[in-house]
Design a protein around this nucleic acid. Structure first.
Length: 854
DNA sequence: CTGTAGCATGGGT
DNA sequence: GACCCATGCTACA
């Protein structure tokens, strides 16, 4: 700071402007450079009298809450002369020193690109130390003041806060650095002995609380210039007015930062946020992995920092809820409950590193019982154990189901593990995914459909958007509790890690949709004239190179005058309006579009339908589990009727094609061909050189298609007959099975295989007349699927649920499809010659035909 | 037949 | 390619 230079410069002090060949270093500027001061100004600065000398008439003076000394708060010069108190006000550094709370003030974003060299001490000691800490193990300390996670800090950014240097200087000036840099052997020894005793961690020295001054003891425990810190996340209740505060921007702010970044960037001081004192530490008693018999547990990897997804994202409120007053809480880690975690098995798979770092050491697979207290104070005993797994271990916590249920957690929610001081009691908390606060590094838990999203997780967002794109606005009621997407891990948690979960979430769409319904809702976009052709009496409508339009579904009805009409729901007010039956209602339709009833061409107009009438029209609403609970809230229910596929989905839920009238033409729609499309059009003949199929094409594909179509008709006909006979029992089966399928609507049959010959010989006319799918067959064929379909799956409709297993099955189905597709072109000829079946309709109306013998 | 415990599998990192 | 871990599988009670 007092370095001299002989370069002729003007004093940086605007009130001085002396030119001098000799200048001295003053305060650190935002650029990272130092203010060059003339000798007198530098002296004033170093004496702490700069502002008193030059800024007496400036505003921004405040008094130290403790000693009353005036400090020029509004000045960069005095920026490091004071600390912000949690309760407001400031404290001069001298007083702050007395309370051993050395949290620097929040600073501006560090000048990444203008970083001057670090003062040697900081570089050599502090930074190395912290750098070493960052890589030294799971860091059960993640809290950091907002200053660290305001601007996103990358872990490897060599950030240097301005206060780092100056603070150390100040500390030096106040004679603190000596003390702080003194790594007491006693303390070290104490820490070592604390790490683990008898397999149980001693988590924090009792004396932390004994003197009633957590902050004080914490400071002594946290020698900033040693690499051996004890992490204490303490609730500095009594000394809050003496704590250096870094204001938390919000009460519920999550205090989080990449550990490595914190450790590598933050000054080695404890930090208070709210009422908490955050004492950074790379290691706690377990940070290096638990030590048993003097030997560190865990492999080398376990000493790496926790994966972001396991870093506790606990909030102040949660901490307060957990710890109460005068207690220290050390957030350890957290984990999003997977389907299996939250399942009936009651096993929570613990992240290995976390288990080894924070839980007692276990040497036998049987493990040991672990007393855990939930946030309500209820004691639980879990069995902490492991399974050998690939030369490794897989740690699980058994018997968590009651606790999970007690906390009303489910898959997607988060369980948190913290440690309560004194005593080191494990605290298990829970967080509903839908209430997760924003997290650092863009890690958030999102509720699909909400605006909350992780900024750094485009993929996750996209995935969410994918779902949204299907759901449109999707039913919030469904989403609220079910559709929870964890934002991501480093790249994308949900996208990469939780593919199953994602699929499961998609399953949660509870989308019951027959492909007949899908077909009726698909149409060519405006200005697009679909080509049509007839194959074996089946009229196809094809519009390539454009996205299909999902028409707005409507409910068929008959006017009081006996005229056929359809009821269409306004997109804005959700009132149902009557339009002529032959009208093609666009997917986006509002009352203002109601040209047929001008009296009801405004949303303010009353609805013509009574609730009873509507309920009659939507009888299935009361059958559906979801809609059942919503049936009493018709408005709320209707309010979620949305455009496009969302509406499609909703309508599909509401009934199996009841009253759906969206297409004016009874054609099979084949919207567009995309990569992966397996329709007969996209599937080139085995030679792969053929042109697209025309209506008179007699290639093997088209021939097979015709054959399939007949079979489809036959099967559906049989299925319908059978359904009408045993629908009730069948529904029970479906419920019991909890959906063998997926969000892909699938048609399968529980009908015995019909001999192929009969298919081929089936009179065409009979099929056409008998089948409700006359003239409707999608061209998308996935002939490979055979093992996917439960014989108990309903024909043309499938219920999807979040049941574990269904998603996985679907996932595997998808994988198998992919694999099959890669072989498909080679095998298509043979396959088509052999296959028959009824299909699977996905949301865009593609039909995958179930392979069938014969 | 059902539930559970323990291991195996395989996608993801 | 090793490791993690979600979940499937299966023997067993």
């Amino acid at each position: 700071m007092s370095a001299m230079s002989s370069t002729m410069e003007v004093c940086f002090n605007s009130n001085c402007k002396e030119s001098s060949e000799k200048w001295r270093r003053g305060w650190r500027r935002r650029t990272g450079e130092y203010a060059h001061l003339c000798d007198p100004c530098a002296s004033a600065y170093e004496d702490g009298k700069f502002c008193e000398t030059f800024h007496t008439n400036a505003s921004g003076w405040r008094c130290c809450e403790s000693c009353g000394k005036q400090i020029h708060c509004g000045c960069i010069v005095s920026f490091h002369m004071f600390v912000l108190l949690d309760a407001g006000g400031i404290e001069c550094l001298t007083c702050a020193k007395k309370s051993y709370i050395l949290t620097p003030n929040p600073a501006w974003p560090p000048p990444l690109h203008f970083l001057p060299s670090q003062p040697e001490r900081m570089t050599d000691v502090s930074m190395k130390t912290w750098g070493a800490l960052a890589a030294s193990g799971p860091v059960p300390w993640r809290q950091a003041p907002s200053v660290f996670n305001g601007p996103r800090i990358q872990a490897n950014d060599q950030l240097k806060m301005p206060f780092e240097i100056d603070l150390s200087d100040r500390i030096d000036r106040y004679g603190l650095s000596e003390r702080l840099s003194m790594a007491s052997p006693e303390i070290k020894q104490e820490r070592s002995s604390e790490r683990l005793a008898n397999g149980k961690m001693r988590l924090g020295p009792p004396e932390i609380l004994q003197n009633g001054n957590i902050g004080l003891k914490v400071k002594e425990q946290h020698c900033p210039f040693t690499s051996d810190f004890k992490p204490i996340y303490s609730r500095n209740d009594t000394s809050s007015n003496r704590s250096l505060g870094v204001a938390s921007s919000s009460k519920n702010e999550t205090i989080d930062a990449p550990i490595s970044s914190i450790l590598s960037q933050s000054p080695p001081v404890s930090i208070t946020v709210g009422k908490q004192v955050f004492s950074p530490s790379g290691l706690d008693s377990s940070g290096e992995g638990q030590i048993l018999n003097g030997k560190s547990r865990g492999d080398g990897r376990s000493r790496n920092q926790l994966l972001p997804r396991y870093r506790p994202q606990i909030t102040n409120e949660e901490l307060q809820q957990i710890s109460g007053d005068l207690k220290c809480i050390t957030p350890l880690f957290e984990k999003m409950l997977s389907a299996s975690d939250a399942g009936r098995i009651g096993r929570l798979v613990l992240p290995k590193k976390c288990a080894e770092a924070y839980f007692p050491s276990i040497n036998h697979a049987e493990g040991l019982p672990l007393n855990v207290q939930d946030i309500k104070g209820k004691e639980w005993v879990f069995q902490f154990r492991f399974w050998p797994n690939n030369n490794s271990r897989m740690y699980v916590l058994e018997g968590i189901t009651p606790c999970i249920q007690s906390m009303q957690l489910q898959a997607g929610d988060v369980v948190t593990f913290s440690r309560l001081e004194p005593g080191g009691k494990l605290i298990m908390g829970g967080r509903k995914a839908s209430v997760v606060p924003s997290l650092d590094q863009g890690e958030e838990v999102n509720v699909i459909g909400s605006e909350a999203s992780s900024p750094g997780d485009a993929n996750a967002r996209n995935k969410s958007a994918d779902i949204i794109s299907v759901n449109g606005h999707m039913k919030e009621k469904i989403l609220e509790d079910k559709l929870v997407i964890p934002a991501k891990r480093k790249n994308n948690y949900i996208n990469a890690k939780s593919k199953r979960l994602r699929i499961e979430n998609e399953d949660m769409m509870e989308l019951n949709l027959t492909y007949k319904e899908a077909q009726k809702l698909i149409r060519a976009p405006a200005k697009t004239v679909p080509s049509s052709f007839v194959v074996d009496g089946c009229e196809f409508e094809e519009f390539e190179e454009c996205e299909p339009v999902i028409g707005r579904p409507a409910l068929l009805g008959i006017d009081h005058s006996g005229e056929k009409i359809q009821w269409v729901q306004c997109e804005d007010c959700f009132k149902w309006r009557k339009v002529p039956a032959n009208v093609l209602v666009p997917s986006k339709w509002t009352c203002s579009d109601n040209a047929w009833d001008l009296h009801r061409s405004m949303c303010s107009s009353a609805e013509e339908l009574t609730n009873e009438q509507l309920e009659q029209m939507l009888p299935a609403m009361n059958k559906d589990p979801i809609n059942k609970e919503e049936s009493s809230e018709r408005d709320a229910d209707l309010s979620v009727a949305v455009e496009g596929l969302d509406t499609l989905a909703n309508l599909a839920i509401q009934g199996e094609g009841k009253g759906l009238v969206a297409s004016s033409e009874n054609r099979t729609k084949h919207p567009c061909h995309r990569p992966g499309c397996t329709c007969v059009v996209c599937l080139q003949p085995p030679s792969r050189k053929g042109a697209k199929h025309g209506h008179s094409c007699t290639c093997v594909v088209c021939t097979s298609l015709k054959h399939r179509f007949r079979t489809l008709m036959e099967r559906l006909e049989k299925k319908q007959t059978e359904n009408s006979q045993g629908q009730q029992s069948h529904e029970k089966e479906l419920d019991a099975d909890a959906c063998v399928g997926s969000s892909t609507v699938k048609c399968s049959s529980n009908v015995e295989e019909a001999p192929n010959s009969s298919h081929a010989e089936e009179p065409k006319g009979r099929i056409s007349s008998a089948s409700p799918l006359k003239g409707q067959i999608d061209l998308n064929i996935q002939p490979e699927r055979e093992e996917d379909f439960s014989p108990r799956s309903d024909c043309g409709v499938v219920k999807c649920s979040s049941q574990p297993g269904s998603s996985d099955r679907f996932f595997r189905q998808q994988q198998q499809q992919q694999q099959h597709r890669s072989l498909e072109s080679d095998m298509i000829g043979n396959l088509l010659a052999k296959q028959d079946g009824v299909g699977c309709v996905n949301i865009i109306g593609c039909v995958a035909l179930d392979k069938e013998s014969g």
